[in-house]
């Protein structure tokens, strides 16, 4: 009875797990230095989950423990995942609530970017529309776009 439940984890297993944890720590630092772009976060989380699993299964000995303890921990972890995911369902998409246009946010953003890029191609002379713009051109001021006059003043 005593032998069944009080599994003594061999020294070698513990040392191997410790070594693996150190290797994974180095790996997470290296992965963060690499230009992975949007994959940065998933990779970091994945490595952290791998490390956490090693600690929980071997150091905390859930692998050898009574199933009821694993159940307790799993259910708790499940609720943490629900907590984070469902909060982000709200906060990550809040800006879209007032948007009732048929286009997606991505499409609108893309159109705005294109319009901005098109504007860059024009010379100040071509951009001049009001008398004030021509006046500014004569004074050798580059900011001919009157619609951005407010921000130009504050700079």
């Amino acid at each position: 009875m005593s032998h069944d439940s009080h599994h003594i984890i061999p020294f070698k297993t513990l040392a191997t797990v410790f070594g693996a944890l150190i290797v994974l720590t180095v790996l997470t630092v290296v992965a963060a230095a690499l230009p992975l772009g949007p994959l940065d976060m998933p990779v970091a989380i994945l490595i952290a989950v791998a490390k956490a699993s090693l600690v929980v299964l071997y150091f905390m000995a859930l692998k050898y423990d009574k199933p009821v303890n694993s159940l307790t921990f799993s259910v708790g972890t499940l609720f943490v995942v629900i907590f984070i995911t469902f909060t982000l369902f709200d906060t990550a998409f809040r800006g879209d609530l007032g948007d009732v246009s048929s286009q997606t946010v991505d499409e609108i953003t893309r159109q705005e970017t294109e319009a901005g890029e098109r504007q860059q191609q024009f010379t100040p002379e071509q951009m001049a529309v009001s008398p004030a713009d021509y006046e500014a051109l004569q004074n050798n001021e580059s900011a001919a776009d009157t619609t951005t006059a407010d921000t130009a003043d504050t700079e």
């Binding site: 303890n69 972890t77 943490v80 984070i84 909060t87 982000l88 906060t91």
Partner: peptide
């Protein structure tokens, strides 16, 4: 041991609130 695991889960949930703040 079961009691300890139940306590540890409350600890995990305590920290999860802060992880949610971080994520948001």
């Amino acid at each position: 041991k079961l009691g300890m695991w139940l306590f540890l889960i409350t600890e995990v949930l305590l920290f999860s609130g802060m992880f949610v703040a971080y994520a948001v």
